[in-house]
């Protein structure tokens, strides 16, 4: 190629750099993130400012438990509980303990739920936040115990209990013990309710199986994030059983709303304010002039 060629108009491109398959899909670690819904790249910094909601399609991405603490509760008000509880391997499943350890290191949590006491617009609440990054948020003995203790603490202090659910259901590796956690959390919630206390369940993506069929569905007020997957049985299982195509929006928050299963669907940006307002509505007692 001569120097002159460079300035020639309408020249045909003779060569091009072809990125490798890997480079095509690679987004520099940490700087950008891809929305799993609309596949658009977003700067991580912008995404965090936008509460992990995609600026293009409004998709609510998964959040870690600590991220939710940051955006939902009053600053520095949260004190966690029962971080010392340790999962054991009651049925001796191979590599179960190792998987728990790995997820613990990845998330900085001792199990798939973070519990504690915090303040919401100045009001004291007990809170449990499930984290689907830890074993799909599945419920074993420790998850059941932590939630139960958080509910008991709420009952003892006479304060509302709020839960953010995100779970694939019961933890298979703990067998029937994990099933019984559904009953355990329920007896604790019953006592909390008998004390006339408020329980708000906030269902996030995904809330299915044993978690959906226990505490997640029995809030005095049930709220969901937009488009969250919520259901009892898995979509594939149902399709195989009934042998018919299921509607596109099947088991989404909007589907549940249409079928009378939810009180409200609330955008993540408005969640803190709206839930704080609900809590206020349950504590203000006297008519003021």
């Amino acid at each position: 190629m001569s120097i002159r060629d460079i300035f020639r108009k309408n020249q045909k491109k003779r060569y091009a750099t072809i990125p490798t398959e890997k480079a095509k899909n690679d987004v520099p670690e940490g700087i950008m993130m891809k929305c799993p819904e609309c596949r658009k790249n977003v700067f991580t910094k912008d995404l965090m400012k936008n509460l992990k909601v995609c600026p293009t399609c409004d998709h609510h991405m998964k959040m870690t438990a600590w991220e939710r603490v940051d955006i939902f509760l009053d600053e520095d008000s949260f004190v966690s509980m029962d971080d010392h509880l340790e999962t054991v391997n009651p049925l001796n499943f191979p590599s179960y303990t190792e998987k728990i350890k790995a997820d613990g290191q990845k998330t900085g949590l001792n199990e798939a739920v973070l519990t504690g006491i915090g303040k919401l617009d100045g009001q004291q609440v007990a809170i449990a936040i499930m984290d689907s990054h830890f074993r799909m948020g599945s419920m074993g003995s420790v998850v059941g115990e932590k939630i139960t203790r958080a509910v008991e603490k709420a009952t003892e202090l006479g304060i509302p209990f709020i839960i953010y659910t995100a779970s694939g259901g019961a933890r298979m590796q703990e067998g029937v013990l994990s099933l019984m956690q559904m009953a355990k959390t329920s007896v604790a919630l019953r006592r909390h309710s008998d004390h006339g206390l408020l329980y708000i369940s906030i269902l996030t993506h995904p809330t299915t199986g044993g978690v959906s069929a226990s505490f997640a569905s029995v809030g005095d007020i049930n709220i969901a994030e937009p488009k969250a997957l919520i259901g009892f049985a898995g979509r594939r299982v149902i399709e195989q059983t009934v042998r018919e195509k299921l509607p596109e929006d099947f088991q989404t928050a909007e589907f549940l709303m249409n079928h009378g299963q939810l009180d409200a669907i609330i955008h993540r940006k408005e969640m803190r304010e709206k839930v704080a307002s609900i809590v206020h509505l349950h504590t203000t007692k006297e008519v003021t002039k």
Binding site: A183, S186, V218, F232, A233
Partner: peptide, 26 residues
């Protein structure tokens, strides 16, 4: 197990089970 079907989900299979757990407790 509880039936995994479309109608069951529409009518709130999760809620029906969850409600029984809490109500039986009391």
């Amino acid at each position: 197990g509880a039936y995994p079907g479309k109608a069951a989900e529409e009518r709130g299979q999760s809620e029906a089970i969850a409600r029984n757990l809490v109500e039986m407790a009391g």
